[in-house]
Simulated scan of single mutants.
Amino acid sequence: MIFRRDRQTKFANDAIQRELETELRGLLKPRIGITGSFGRGNYGDELFVRVYEHWLGQWADLTLLTALHRPWYFRDIRTTQADLMDAVVLGGGDLLCPYREWIDPDFINPMYLRRPVHVAGIGVENDRVEIDSSVVERWTDFLTHPSVRSISTRDVGSAEWITEQINPHVRVTSHADLVCALPLPPVDRREDTPILGIVTRYARDPKDYRQLEEIAAAFISKGWHVRHIIGGVEDHGRRDLRNAEQLRVEGKETFHSNQIDDVTRALGECSLLLSMKLHTTIVATMYGVPTVSIHPVPKTRAFMASIGREELVVEPTDPRLFTILEEGVPDVSMDKVDELRAQAVAYLKELSQRIWDDYRNASAARQHVLPATVAWVDGDES
Rank of each mutant, 00 (worst) to 15 (best):
Q246M: 13
V129T: 15
Q8D: 11
T66D: 13
I166K: 09
I294W: 06
P186W: 04
F219D: 05
E164A: 14
L267Y: 04
R114S: 11
V377R: 11
T140R: 13
S37H: 13
L348W: 02
V148S: 05
E53D: 15
I103Y: 06
G44W: 05
I108S: 12
N167P: 00
A362C: 02
L24Y: 09
D380F: 07
I131D: 11
I220L: 13
I355A: 06
I131W: 04
D94P: 13
S363K: 14
Y73M: 12
H228M: 04
R31F: 02
P185N: 06
L95T: 03
I220C: 02
G26I: 04
R309V: 00
I162Q: 03
A15P: 01
T264Y: 01
S306P: 06
Q211R: 14
D240Q: 13
V313S: 05
R78Q: 15
Q343F: 04
L90A: 10
D262H: 12
R204F: 11
A15M: 08
P105M: 09
S306I: 01
A365S: 12
V156I: 12
T66C: 08
E327Q: 15
G41H: 10
G231N: 14
V233R: 14
D357I: 00
L113R: 08
H228N: 09
D331L: 12
L267R: 00
N126D: 14
D192V: 09
L370D: 01
E191T: 13
P186Y: 08
S363V: 04
E326A: 14
T22M: 11
D262C: 09
P116Y: 03
L184M: 05
R265H: 05
R114E: 08
P206C: 04
T373A: 03
E160C: 01
Y209K: 02
R114Q: 13
V374A: 03
V283W: 03
G308R: 02
T80E: 15
D380L: 13
Y347C: 00
V51K: 03
S352P: 08
W59E: 09
G123F: 01
E381F: 08
L274H: 04
T291R: 02
S352W: 06
T291W: 04
G157Y: 12
